[in-house]
Design a protein around this nucleic acid. Structure first.
Lengths: 180, 180
DNA sequence: GCCACCTATGCAACTAGTTGCAACCCTGCG
DNA sequence: CGCAGGGTTGCAACTAGTTGCATAGGTGGC
């Protein structure tokens, strides 16, 4: 299980409240580990109980108070331990692949339409990632430390989107040749 | 949720017992939707109660009886319905990506070792997939219907492994340049 | 003043998936 | 015989994640 640890990584980079973490998840780490705000709150509560993070209530102008979390020393040690620990392969679960495999038991035209929509989404997301690369990493060869890590993970995102685009294109091509 | 539907696809191709389904999952559909035998049994039970499948106990020589499941008409209709339904993007959760992102808060050498192991696994799996392609689909251009579907899904597997290999290689290269 | 809407935190109930184990049948070995 | 080992089905308890909703403070429009 890794949501705890994803939050530790995010909070190590910068302290944040639950909602800020949620939004950050919608943008950076969240491309590779999704979570809803409810779950983040729950896990933050557990982590605080376990002493991995501590929180401070911060008053805001024109807004409700927020609870800002920061990583404690035990939290830091736990993150270190987890990073060194062997990583189990994360199970992939793609309903789209299952649908494609079972296409002959359903409406193929509808499925092709879904493939097109998915292709569109991945194209959009690829454009976003490439925009981020261009904006934040003008010269990757000079990067080091945490910046290089962040860049390489973003590169993973680019490659992953490219994978989907290429494969969905192959799929659509194969099924929309004139003869079918 | 899609395990039910993955099982319907698998059983549409050929009837099977719980354990046979488990093994089939370890090989074909299971590359894109994993499940343990316990879960498969539980879901099969629920599906039978809902009338999506029916089972028949088959005596075997030298082995315990097995319960062979087959898809019923309501099950077939449900599969059809599900295939036509819009597909939500399956959340990706990769602990390895989270670890890479947080590498500066842990032991980088240990992480590079994990990357190498993962690269190795993906290379092995790519070799397996390519073997399957070569063995079962000598001439893809002649395929149609369910065979084409199965081939394209396998191609997705190949491309996915290739994605991991390329990205892990980029990652390792970036972090093992002489200067670091 | 009241309502719609945004920020922020959170509970409860549900669904999905994992881990650990039990039970049972049969075969083959010493 | 007795016991290890594989095949087969399954229960129970746990962990993780989702959905729906509640609460509460504040802003801005009518």
């Amino acid at each position: 299980m890794a949501l705890e640890h994803a939050l530790l990584v995010s909070l190590s980079e910068r302290t944040a409240s639950g909602l800020e973490l949620t939004r950050r998840f919608d943008r950076s780490i969240g491309h590779f580990w999704t979570a809803t705000h409810q779950q983040i709150y729950r896990v933050l509560g557990r982590m605080e109980k376990d002493g991995w993070v501590r929180s401070e209530t911060v008053a805001q102008q024109g807004r409700p108070d927020k609870k800002v979390y920061e990583v404690t020393e035990p939290g830091r040690l736990e993150l270190e331990r987890w990073i060194a620990e062997p990583t189990a392969g994360d199970p992939l679960r793609s309903s789209l692949m299952v649908k494609f495999r079972g296409a002959s038991y359903g409406d193929r035209a509808a499925l092709l339409e879904q493939a097109r929509e998915r292709l569109d989404e991945h194209n959009k997301r690829l454009a976003l990632y490439e925009h981020l690369v261009g904006r934040d990493y003008a010269d990757p060869s000079t990067l080091d430390g945490h910046d290089l890590d962040a860049y390489l993970v973003l590169r993973g995102g680019v490659r992953l989107e490219q994978f989907w685009i290429d494969w969905l294109t192959e799929y659509l091509d194969a099924w929309t040749k004139e003869s079918r």
